[in-house]
Design a protein around this nucleic acid. Structure first.
Lengths: 414, 414
DNA sequence: CATATTTTCTTGCGTGTCGAGAAAAAGTTG
DNA sequence: CAACTTTTTCTCGACACGCAAGAAAATATG
């Protein structure tokens, strides 16, 4: 709505910071060239940011490739300006990562989740303790942590960091805001992890292909549960992403029972437990297993590859349902490239033909042509990177309120 | 990305114009209060816009409710500044509406489509002729028409005004850009009509409820085919909307044959022809009828209400499929209020219970609660109003390039 | 040590928004 | 009818932003 001259400055500042994120350490002229801003504007903004402590000058260019003229002054994010903590919660482990403002991983705690800890309050208690330990270990005051971004599977509220439904705690909600606010001033975010897979893949593609990267892309995560992420280039060079609760989209109203209590969700056809259930011909409304060991899945896959009809059909059906589901998504959004990740890619040979066939059987996909499908086996890394990239982009865009105290401090100094 | 001081002016100008759209004729102070801009800025912008001929002063306030102080100078859009033509193409009729810049309908041509005109080139020829006639009748030069916005059902390309697939012409595309560019300089847009139903409903709700209006809403159009529109409040007070090709989302991969050639589309269960086919127990892969007279549908409905099992089931299944389909959409976006329009609302009593039951059976909808459903019987009016509102909002936002010649003209005058 | 080269930094200008107050145009009151 | 009040419009000076151009800085080269 109303935009003032300060809005303009904000945008330009964000643009400068964004230039440094994608270029790495860079000089005035580099930033000006990349951003389209004039050299004068960049100069004014960088000195401002430098005084505020957000940027710092690189110690000097070591003379190596110095060239002829006045030596360039390289700028970069001041790593110690603020920190973020990226947490990844999976059903097996929790990973707490401390990351500085330049995006470098400083410290990490990984803990196994006891498989019998089905109690939300025990989980919460340990969660808080580990978080505190991580900050303490680097002797960082809590005020230096500007964002705690938690990723998980399951259903996440849109507007609050609340886990509404998860495979482990079911309908017992976990409110991370209520949990962490007492001890932390940081921004607290809870995001479905598949979103960040999409974010990371899109970010990487943009870095590689530049303007040629696709306007939108999707990522599918296969495992115990099914996740779908979408990423798109918004105006202003930023990449935005969402996670869709694809796993709990109804595929067939009277279908097999899902962990969420509904019948016929995509997950109830294509999740590991669903494939297991089908392969062993267990009744379709049996309450699903919470965990399926990978080697058990491997065994079924082996049977399928050897020609066992039942096992083969279990995987094929999983692929079919994914294909139809994706065709629905692409129908509503638009056909876009697909990247598949997660432990389930080990069985992709058993699912992909059915997936592709069903994906193509749709008016919109027929017109746009079949989307490119690619596979990545580093889901964990992608989730982490995507999370960090999104957090840092957030900070770059609106580090203005946050730093009010720092700015006041500077004013006094003058 | 890069924003300059001119960007700022653009935005402020758009804000002023947008204030006048929602307030009607208004004074400086009104505009300043509504927009948050200062009185000085508004003054500078309005005199600018007035000189360019975009705004005009209202002839004086007739002294009636004049009040005490200096009399207000009311401003409004200069109706004759530019014109738009809004065209609505349905399978039965084509409606061409000439609308001035203030949003007033100036002239309209309605023509029946010959039911045997299945030839795209005959259609195209008549289309061009009628459009030319409309402009000529008001003796407007083509250059005064700044936008021709066509609405239709069927599959529309995202980035070009091309009708890719339609019930009548099938896969024979109609490229309105190629068709109209020779004779018109106007912007040419082709949009699925359900989008504008959503736009109009959202716009109306905002006018009635102000900030209390829902952030998002959906509209479902029932008839020969099925349409779904979504509208949402974007930042900057504007309402944005999309039409989703909901009718051709696959409901069931091996389901009945759809007019589009796929099997199991939503339309193939819930469109009029699908209900007819089911009620008469015609084989599900029979090539669907292109038109179903309303009185024939009425007859089936009558039978269903009297207890005919087969007819009743045909409608119930249509409702079920719509409900499951909507649950999928709400799962991917978010649950939101639903407005149902179109000729099919006459049979809603036969479909609504099944629709509601299936809509609720979903994890996401279960958490958000069942969406409010309302019914409107003025689809035609909504499509028209939504189209006009969207066009005018577009013009208000970027009438800057368009008016380059007018501005040059003014420069010479000075 | 002067010159070429490259980058950084500064100055002046045009444009945008805003606050405050002057000017305008009525009604109100003695 | 003239002075006063009220309400709105309009103008002016101050300040912020971005930009083009050129001055200044810092180095390599001959």
């Amino acid at each position: 709505m109303k935009a003032s001259t300060e809005t303009l400055r904000r945008q330009s500042r964000a643009l400068v910071l964004s230039a440094l994120r994608t270029l790495g350490p860079a000089s005035h002229t580099d930033i000006a060239a990349w951003s389209g801003l004039s050299s004068a504007t960049v100069s004014s903004i960088t000195t401002e940011l430098e005084q505020e402590g957000i940027l710092e000058r690189l110690p000097s260019e070591a003379g190596a490739a110095a060239g002829r003229g006045r030596p360039r002054v390289l700028l970069r994010h001041n790593a110690g300006w603020v920190y973020i903590i990226a947490v990844r919660v999976t059903s097996e482990t929790i990973q707490y990562s401390l990351v500085d403002y330049s995006g470098t991983l400083k410290d990490r705690i990984e803990e196994k989740r006891p498989q019998d800890e089905l109690n939300a309050s025990a989980f919460s208690k340990r969660f808080c303790a580990s978080l505190a330990r991580l900050a303490k270990r680097s002797s960082l005051p809590h005020s230096k942590i500007s964002k705690i971004s938690i990723t998980s599977k399951g259903l996440v509220a849109r507007d609050r960091p609340v886990l509404l439904w998860s495979a482990i705690f079911g309908d017992v909600p976990i409110d991370f805001e209520a949990l962490l606010r007492p001890a932390w001033q940081a921004d607290i975010a809870l995001i479905n992890e598949t979103r960040f897979v999409a974010q990371a893949v899109a970010e990487r593609l943009r870095a590689e292909l530049g303007g040629e990267s696709p306007a939108r892309l999707s990522t599918l995560s296969l495992g115990h549960s099914i996740g779908l992420g979408l990423a798109g280039k918004e105006k202003g060079r930023r990449i935005s992403s969402v996670a869709l609760p694809f796993g709990h989209m109804i595929h067939q109203p009277d279908g097999p029972l899902c962990r969420c209590g509904s019948q016929g969700c995509v997950e109830a056809f294509s999740g590991f437990y669903a494939i297991l259930r089908k392969a062993f011909d267990v009744p379709q409304n049996t309450i699903p297993a919470k965990f399926v060991p990978l080697d058990q899945m491997d065994k079924i896959a082996m049977q399928a590859r050897r020609g066992d009809r039942r096992a083969e059909y279990a995987f094929r059906q999983a692929g079919e349902v994914l294909g139809v589901g994706l065709s629905r998504v692409f129908n509503l959004y638009e056909p876009m490239p697909l990247t598949i990740t997660g432990p389930g890619i080990r069985y992709l040979d058993l699912m992909l033909p059915a997936l592709e066939a069903n994906l193509a059987n749709n008016l919109v996909v027929r017109f746009a042509g079949p989307p490119k499908i690619s596979i990545r086996d580093d889901e964990s890394e992608l989730v982490f990177r995507g999370n960090v990239q999104a957090c840092l982009a957030d900070l770059d865009t609106d580090n203005h309120e946050l730093n009010a105290e720092a700015q006041a401090f500077l004013k006094v100094e003058e």
